[in-house]
């Protein structure tokens, strides 16, 4: 493993076309100026965008679709997801801790995870809201990938990280011609990594790290939540776009079928009990709850970060609430 294989972009695209028969392949494609995962077919294989920061849709939706019948144990087709950024891969640590709990795993999630090959990629660019490095995450995949893929110049470099990944790499190598990765290409990959990392680091210098953020959030009084929640309309876009927000609600269908609908504590009534009590009734409480969950409770319970600094919630918010501005304000209050 990890020896690496080099293919020309053309050969690689041929190989992808060859894989379409056996796998559902998803990769980031530029859609009207937005980068998002698309099902790959021979027509759009050339439009795949490589080494771009996180797509609009978080990786979680492949394993936890917005709406899913969890009663039927349908055999999922094999999936390949291409160009997954580091932040989303990091988010899997938390999702796996919740859903693959050894004693009682979620069988539906488990099956999807097992049937999916994850091909991660380094980020060679950054978006304004990207801040993974703030939380100790590098802008290149270090875990949860089966294969690492990078585009350097017009060359694709493949590196298998798991047995499952190795099988697919072997399959690709049997389809098209490849060569070994030269040292200067390796150096180019490393240089690109350092450049992205430095860029993120410099842009987010003012942000506190994960632990400090948690401490600030835990210790603050109520006023900041009220202030920022004034612009919140409980639309739930922050949670929907979040790679780690995975709460859901079961909806009943006749025949004892359960439909899993992704849900969020940002919606009214999330914690309402039968008798009507609802600790999260005030909007500002719901608003605060998400921060407490991400930076205080989840990390304690699951020993995994619940915010990977992808910044999607900042871009998605129609009230233009920037959680990093909130955190900086908290920090300023404390240091004053």
């Amino acid at each position: 493993m990890n020896t690496g294989h080099l293919l020309s972009r053309e050969r690689w695209e041929e190989a992808v076309e060859g894989l379409i028969r056996d796998y559902k392949i998803y990769a980031p494609v530029n859609l009207w100026g937005h980068m998002d995962y698309e099902r790959i077919n021979p027509e759009n294989v050339k439009q795949i965008v490589y080494n771009f920061p996180r797509p609009i849709t978080p990786l979680k939706t492949f394993f936890l679709p917005v709406k899913q019948n969890v009663s039927q144990s349908t055999v999922n087709e094999k999936m390949v997801i291409l160009g997954v950024p580091s932040c989303d891969l990091q988010a899997l640590h938390l999702l796996d801790a919740i859903y693959l709990d050894e004693k009682l795993p979620d069988t539906v999630y488990k099956k999807r995870r097992e049937n999916t090959i994850l091909i991660g990629s380094d980020c060679h660019q950054t978006l304004d809201s990207c801040h993974c490095t703030t939380y100790g995450i590098n802008p290149y995949p270090e875990s949860n990938i089966d294969i690492l893929l990078n585009l350097i110049g017009d060359k694709i470099i493949l590196e298998a990280h798991t047995e499952k990944g190795q099988d697919l790499v072997n399959n690709i190598l049997s389809l098209v011609k490849s060569s070994a990765v030269e040292e200067n290409t390796r150096q180019e990959i490393l240089a690109a990594r350092e450049k992205t990392k430095a860029e993120l680091f410099n842009r987010n210098k003012n942000l506190p790290d994960y632990m400090t953020t948690g401490k600030l959030i835990r210790e603050t009084n109520g006023t900041i939540w009220k202030k920022y929640a004034e612009d919140c309309v409980s639309c739930g876009a922050c949670a929907a776009s979040c790679p780690t927000c995975s709460c859901f609600l079961l909806i009943d269908r006749p025949g004892f079928e359960k439909i899993r609908n992704l849900d969020t504590c940002q919606y009214p009534g999330f914690e309402r009990v039968a008798a009507g009590e609802d600790p999260l009734k005030p909007l500002s409480q719901r608003f605060k709850n998400r921060y407490m969950c991400k930076y205080v409770w989840k990390p304690v319970r699951y020993d995994a970060v619940a915010c990977t600094g992808c910044g999607r919630c900042i871009d998605a918010c129609i009230g233009r609430i920037n959680k990093n501005e909130l955190i900086v304000e908290l920090m300023d209050k404390v240091t004053v």
Binding site: S246, C247, F248
Partner: peptide, 11 residues
């Protein structure tokens, strides 16, 4: 307000 009952749904 438990939904899934076994620690997944977050409710």
């Amino acid at each position: 307000n438990m939904s899934c009952g076994y620690g997944k749904c977050g409710h």
